[in-house]
Write a protein that binds this DNA or RNA. Structure first.
Lengths: 244, 244
DNA sequence: GTATCCAACGTTGTATACAAAAGAGGTAAC
DNA sequence: GTTACCTCTTTTGTATACAACGTTGGATAC
């Protein structure tokens, strides 16, 4: 009855910047989910996470809502209550997700291929550099998954960033990390087929450099579609995670 | 110091269902924005809305975050503070938005065209009925905008609903109402060209009924692209709303 | 008359208190 | 032994309290 008179002294552990809790909570939770620290299928309890991250429930709650909206977390709606769990990774979901990204990036590729050639040149140079980077990693047998992922991500991000408006950019930014979950959880097994993806990238580069919008769009779509198939095979071998 | 001992008696006005405040606030706010009750460009004050709708700030806040994520509301980020305003309607935004929807529905149309013909038949029947409905309204000079909007919406929704997975469905459900804002604010002027849209719909139906996925996808994309152009002309005449 | 500083206010962000609903587990009845 | 009911616990949803920050307006000094 007296205790609640001084709520301000409640989080003495660390000095935290004001106005950043929600954002920070969101990012940390997303990272935990993407990296599998919070395994697919896990039940989520707001208070636990709040305690674990050192926030109160309010920003956690906001972060969870956003994570739900972006597909990292799903609500098991039991009437008016909604318990949440980390979204499972399934073959069907991967397939759909990759299709969507393929079409969104397809739109971006189309726009990029339509840019004036002066602007296109810079983009193409960057794309080529990323793709040669990938090729080198593919030859060297070290297979640093993080580095490969980063290059691949940069490749796609470059295409989108070159021409997309704010909406498409935002949409891509929210959808892409969800593909990252699949990447990271099944990465090891994907790396073998890196060569195929590199070849597909080549085609995309060539289409953009010719200014062929149709081919560029198609190329991206094919890249993602094949990616989904490669993933499918891996999932068949290793089994799905977080769904039962 | 004593007052806060009985917060529960604070909303005596109406008996409200538990666990629905956030959802209800979101829907009502979205409706207000889509219908223009909250004009584009308006500054948003949480406490005002809370008072107006009879909730506390908590669910309003959640609803606003979601509205922001979905593009109805934008944050004017001033350092760590973020004041919000109702997203303005601009020509560029309309263009990008319509492109995105075109591509998402394009994916759906492609999938729908690939369904086994038994399932397709039902879908086609519904599409035809909606489109004849539109044609009738176009002939009759009454131009009930709501009715037209509803039929057009149903047409597109049918295509998506016939084949899309949960992710695509969800994405469509969140993106589509944003197009509705443009529709409603500029409706009167769009109705003249209804005939063109109907013709485009015809092509889409025929493509789906032939099972021609490419043509179906293209048809939808063209429909939205032309829609954006029709809208552009209207905006040129009437001026943008909420941007200065 | 203008520019600068200070104070009061408005608005947001976070923490906490409390209530309702769902779920688990045990006990009693058949 | 099984089922049904009741209670206790867990967890979510909402309201409110409070603090920090930005902004605005006025007052004062030049």
């Amino acid at each position: 009855m007296l205790a609640h008179r001084r709520p301000a002294a409640a989080h003495p552990k660390e000095e935290r910047e004001r106005g950043q809790s929600l954002h920070s909570a969101f990012q940390r939770l997303r990272e935990m989910i993407v990296n599998g620290k919070l395994a697919p299928g896990t039940w989520i309890i707001e208070a636990d996470l709040a305690a674990r991250l050192g926030f109160s429930r309010t920003p956690i709650r906001g972060a969870l809502h956003r994570l739900e909206r972006e597909g990292y977390v799903v609500a098991a709606s039991n009437g008016s209550k909604s318990r949440m769990l980390v979204a499972p990774l399934t073959k069907e979901d991967a397939h759909e997700l990759y299709s969507i990204i393929g079409h969104l990036e397809g739109l971006a590729a189309r726009l990029t291929a339509g840019l004036p050639s002066a602007e296109r040149a810079k983009t193409i140079a960057r794309l080529k550099s990323y793709n040669t980077g990938l090729a080198e990693l593919a030859r060297a047998r070290h297979a640093d998954a993080n580095r490969i992922f980063e290059l691949d991500l940069n490749f796609h991000r470059t295409i989108v960033g070159a021409s997309a408006g704010p909406r498409l950019l935002e949409l891509h930014k929210t959808v892409q990390p969800q593909a990252e979950r699949y990447w990271r959880l099944y990465a090891g097994a994907i790396l073998d087929e890196l060569g195929k993806s590199i070849a597909e990238h080549e085609k995309i580069i060539s289409a953009i450099s010719k200014g062929d919008a149709d081919a560029a769009e198609l190329g991206i779509q094919v890249n993602w579609q094949n990616g989904a198939q490669r993933l499918s095979r891996v999932i068949d071998n290793l089994g799905e995670r977080g769904s039962w």
